[in-house]
């Protein structure tokens, strides 16, 4: 008798492609109401998404002012999208993250054509060795370490660690497979550990 293949953790792998079920979207109701012009829904979706998008862009770009522009532009695109959104095909949050990431990439290409090397030069490498390390210093060290990661690794760490997205949603936002996402995360965290080795206890 043929049995489905399972891996080390007992996950079942099937050769048969599964029909994709409609996507369960926690934002669906709000998006539907925004699409009808409901001002309360606009306020609620802003409260839910603007901080997330600002944080995302700030961590990808390393610049708070630019992050605000990106977050604003992303939500303006969300208002345009809401009336014509095709429910059940994708999560609105993943789409919104994809929009914000694309805007960040455009911004990085335009402002910093040299890529990560240029970004590294913009970041303070950390406190002088004779100074004690305070909490804000640790944050700055982390920011500096994140800034020198290759862009895709940085985006993967930001989505999964800071934005708390699941692997499927993060992979969708980056337009890659879940396996590729896991590889990016693993390499990114390894590089961060190396860069922050004096702080990791």
């Amino acid at each position: 008798m043929l049995r489905p293949a399972t891996d080390a953790l007992g996950r079942i792998h099937s050769d048969r492609p599964a029909a994709s079920p409609p996507v369960d979207d926690p934002d669906a109701d709000l998006v539907r109401r925004v699409g009808t012009g409901d001002p309360l829904a606009v306020r609620a979706l802003t409260a839910r998404k603007l901080p997330r998008l600002t944080a995302l862009a700030a961590r990808v770009l390393g610049d708070a002012a630019e992050a605000e522009d990106i977050a604003q532009e992303s939500l303006i695109r969300a208002w345009r999208q809401a009336p014509v959104w095709r429910f059940g095909e994708a999560r609105f949050d993943a789409w919104l993250h994809r929009v914000a990431l694309n805007l960040c990439r455009d911004r990085l290409r335009r402002v910093r054509p040299g890529g990560p090397q240029d970004l590294e030069a913009l970041v303070d490498p950390g406190p002088a060795p004779d100074r004690g390390l305070e909490a804000s210093d640790v944050g700055e060290r982390v920011a500096a370490a994140m800034a020198i990661l290759p862009a895709r690794q940085r985006e993967a760490v930001v989505l999964c660690h800071y934005q708390e997205m699941g692997n499927i949603q993060a992979a969708a936002a980056l337009g890659i497979s879940v396996e590729a996402l896991e590889s990016l995360l693993s390499r990114g965290r390894r590089a961060l550990r190396a860069a922050l080795s004096d702080l990791v206890t």
Binding site: T54, A55, E68, G139, V142, M146, Y162, R189, L199, V200
Partner: peptide, 14 residues
């Protein structure tokens, strides 16, 4: 231990 370090980087609020 790495997770805790990463969380020390706070993002700006809008």
């Amino acid at each position: 231990s790495l997770d805790r370090l990463l969380f020390a980087w706070e993002a700006p609020r809008p």
